[in-house]
Each structure stands twice: as structure tokens, then as C-alpha cells.
Design a protein around this nucleic acid. Structure first.
Lengths: 250, 250
DNA sequence: CCTTTCTATTTGTCTGACTATATCCGAGAG
DNA sequence: CTCTCGGATATAGTCAGACAAATAGAAAGG
């Protein structure tokens, strides 16, 4: 007879992301964070399913489903006899939205952050340029509405942040490129998550609206180069802000 | 009493990718292909777990693990009472290596292919530029060895293709950017998968070595702009070749 | 007509058994 | 002494059937 209280242990705090409330989702999250944060080194072998599930006070099937999730994201690999081992970092799907979220929950390494912004700096300006060439009137109108909403609500409110998301998502949609959309939207979501931290530590570091409008105007005018340049500035500022919120020198 | 023969039905042909031979992996693959190929439209609700597992002659747990895999990749969402439904395309993790592989197994839409190459055209030249700035001598030497091997074996052999992979992977490694590495290497793997098709339909469409050496020389000389331009040419040629292998006009 | 309650359906979780597979090690052959 | 082969063994994988939880939709009530 085992005690049935407090299943999943400390993992019950799972709310955001994949499978809120579900046990397998919570375990995947906990284990995932432990892995991406380096608590389990690549090559390390996790304790076997029986012991692990007993330790967490969950059934073996629930634990197994959690491991399947991690395996699907490239974080672990399971084989009979050997067990389940943490995969080499090169196999991790770092662009998976959940993996990204887990990374950001445990203070990502400065190196990784640098790389992520480097990638944004490559991709997002190019996306803005494509959007300037391909956007239709409906998308343009949605961008305008989003910016107006954002201006009224400011980034301090939930509605304002939603408007910001809408704007950027519509820009991506206007590129008419599914792969690009997936990439940027998952990175954007993860980074925006960090931005919320920033909002708590210091007040709005600067007014983001003028730069947003510059991007909009360039897209509206169908000027790819201008859109690219404006988006570069926007991402650059986001980098500064994020850096300020990470660095302890304040 | 159920007959035990031929579990998973036609899905047993699963070899490559995630979980070769394992039942849940095979089901995930089959279902995943069915979804990305449009056989199951977004919003559609799959038949429930009991019926599905009976239909496939597998246990419910095996089927559930398969669904967990698909959910982890954003292809489906499960909720009690409602069932498991195919997610909107915007939620699919198109950059997941397995999803990409599934897409390429069912002749991806021309639109998607165009988008993918557009993304390559954005990312890979930028990666080459970064590599030119940051590569160290060891990486340079590995690139050289890979190209020599590739030249001797040609792309028609398995070893030659492996050398090609090595070259590109080393370039990515030299960028010292984990996110960029993950992105390009999964796209590259998927596209290279298509290239194999190409090799079967027509002989080597042109000698790829000179362009590869140009990339190498630029990286060796630490000339980012030249590396970028050379890689643009390389990706552009790959696009032509892939297009030729897809288009039926031959 | 709106709100609340109930019910039925589906996923979620649990238990415990059996199977398949790969690693490791020891015995036998060379 | 070394190498090869085969079996022991630990582990994930699969199976079966039961029960729990959640929720959409219907029914009852205001």
C-alpha cells in the first residue's frame, strides 16, 4: 500500500503549455526542465520506469507517456535493456515551443540567448521584407488595428501584449510562408515570455510604438528594404531590453 | 479473442526516424503522415482510442503513446469527452525533424517547398557568414576533409552523401549557435532526403563541387560576405535541382 | 429565455502481467 | 590466451481490463 497523496510531487504546479493539469504533461515538464537546465547531463541514464513512477507516485503508464513526449522532442532516447538516456544536445529540438518554454523557465544560458537573438536578427527582418511584398489589405488592416489597440493599452496590460502578439503574428502570416511562421512564432512566444519578467523589474524601458509604426508604414508602402531595416531596429531594441532584464547589473 | 497477426496493419513498414520497429512509433508515423498529407483535415476528430486501437490490433496504451507523440509535435490535441482532434496548421511544429520527414514522404505541396527553400535562402547564407567569422582551425580542417571525401566518392554513393552532411554540419557547428544548428540541420536532413529521389530520376544534374569549394574558401579566408554569397548560390542550385525532381515536366 | 443540474462519452490513470530486445558475461572453441 | 557464440538478465515495450476525472451537451428548473 502506497500513500496516494501529492501525486507528481512538486510537479503539480504545471499550468502553461502542452497538457495543463494532466499528469503526463506535468512530469514531462518537470523532467524536461531538469534536462535542459543541465540537472541531467546528456548521456546520463535515468532511473528505470518502475522506480521513477514509484518515486513520483504515479502509474508506470503515465510516466511512460511523459517519456514519449520528451523523446518526441529529442530530449531522450529509450531502448530496452539500456534504459532511457538523455540525448546529445545536438538532437534536442530547441525550436519546439515547449522546449523553448522550459529553457526560459530555468534562466537560459547567456550563450543560448545570444544565439536565439542572432537567429531572430536573421529571420525576422527577412520576414518583414517578405510581408511588405505579399501582404494583402485585410492583413494590413489587422496590423493597424493591433497597433492602435497596443498603443491604447500599453504593453503593461494583458490586452496590450495580446495586441503586440497579433501584430507580429499577422506580419508573419503575411509572408505566406508556413515554415517561417512556425519558426518565428515559437521563438517570439518564448522571448515574449521573458519580456514579462522585464516588465516587472523595471518600468517600460522605452516607448516601443514609434518603431512598431515604422515597420507598419514600410509594409503598407510595400517597401521591403525599409521594412527589413525597421524590423532590425525593433529586434535590436528587444535584445537590449532582454539583456537588461537578465544581466544583474542594474 | 482477437487475432494477433499483423499488428499495426500497413504501418509496420516503419524504419527510419524516431522509434523504428516500436509499435507506438509506427502508429505515430502512419497517423502523422495521414495528417500532414491532408487525409485528416484540421479540426477533424479522430475515432476514439478504443475503436482505433481495436482497428489497428494494438493495445490502447500503445495507441495512446502514439497520440502523445503527435500531440508533442503539435499535430493533435486531446481532451476528455471531445476526443482527439487535428490541430490547426498554425500549431504544427513544421520544423520538427520527424514532421518534416513525414511531410516529405507524401510529396509536400509546392507552396510548402517554396517556403522551405525561402527559409533556407534566408538562414543558410547568414550561417555561412557567421561561420566565416568564428570557425576555428579544427573545424576548417574537418570541412576540408569532408569536401575531399565528397569529391572522391561523388554524391552518388552513400559515403559521398555522408561527407556532404559532414561538411554542412561542420559549417553549422562553426556558427557556434545552437538554435541555428538545430534549425538548419533538420531542414537540411529533410531536403537531402528529397535529393535522393532526384538522384534516381536523373544523373548528377551538375557538378556541385566548385560551389562547395567556393563556400569553403570564403570561410577559410574569413570573408563573411563572400561566404554568404557563395552559400546563396549553393542553396539556389539545390532549389533548382529539387524543383526539377518534383515537376513532372522532364 | 436563461441558468443550473444531470448524464453520457471520452480521455486519463491505475494495476499487474507478459513479451521483446539488447547488453553483458561466461563457456567453449580455436 | 584470444575470440566467438550463446545464454542469462535487466529494461523498455506491449497487453488487458478496470476505474477515475473531466467536460460537452442534454435535460430540468427558474
Amino acid at each position: 500500500m502506497k500513500k496516494k497523496s501529492d501525486p507528481v510531487g512538486a510537479a503539480e504546479t504545471a499550468r502553461s503549455g502542452g497538457n495543463p493539469g494532466r499528469i503526463h504533461g506535468a512530469i514531462a515538464r518537470t523532467l524536461g526542465i531538469a534536462i535542459v537546465s543541465g540537472q541531467h547531463q546528456p548521456g546520463e541514464i535515468l532511473t528505470n520506469e518502475i522506480e521513477s513512477s514509484e518515486l513520483l507516485n504515479v502509474s508506470r503508464s503515465a510516466y511512460r507517456e511523459a517519456v514519449r513526449i520528451l523523446a518526441a522532442k529529442g530530449l531522450v532516447e529509450s531502448r530496452p535493456k539500456t534504459g532511457t538516456r538523455v540525448s546529445a544536445k545536438a538532437r534536442w529540438n530547441l525550436l519546439d515551443p515547449e522546449v523553448l518554454a522550459w529553457l526560459f523557465e530555468s534562466e537560459p544560458s547567456e550563450d543560448f540567448l545570444r544565439g536565439l537573438f542572432e537567429l531572430r536578427m536573421i529571420v525576422e527582418p527577412a520576414a518583414a521584407a517578405l510581408a511588405a511584398e505579399r501582404r494583402d489589405e485585410g492583413q494590413l488592416e489587422r496590423m493597424r488595428q493591433a497597433l492602435i489597440e497596443m498603443q491604447q493599452q500599453t504593453l503593461a496590460t494583458e490586452a496590450g501584449q495580446a495586441a503586440d502578439r497579433d501584430f507580429h503574428d499577422t506580419v508573419l502570416e503575411a509572408t505566406d510562408n508556413a515554415a517561417l511562421f512556425t519558426l518565428s512564432s515559437s521563438i517570439g512566444a518564448a522571448v515574449r515570455w521573458t519580456t514579462i519578467f522585464k516588465q516587472r523589474k523595471r518600468e517600460l524601458p522605452r516607448d516601443p510604438m514609434p518603431d512598431h509604426w515604422k515597420v507598419f508604414d514600410a509594409i503598407a508602402a510595400r517597401r521591403p528594404d525599409a521594412a527589413k531595416a525597421a524590423m532590425e531596429r525593433l529586434v535590436g531594441l528587444a535584445l537590449d531590453d532582454t539583456r537588461a532584464s537578465i544581466d544583474p547589473k542594474d
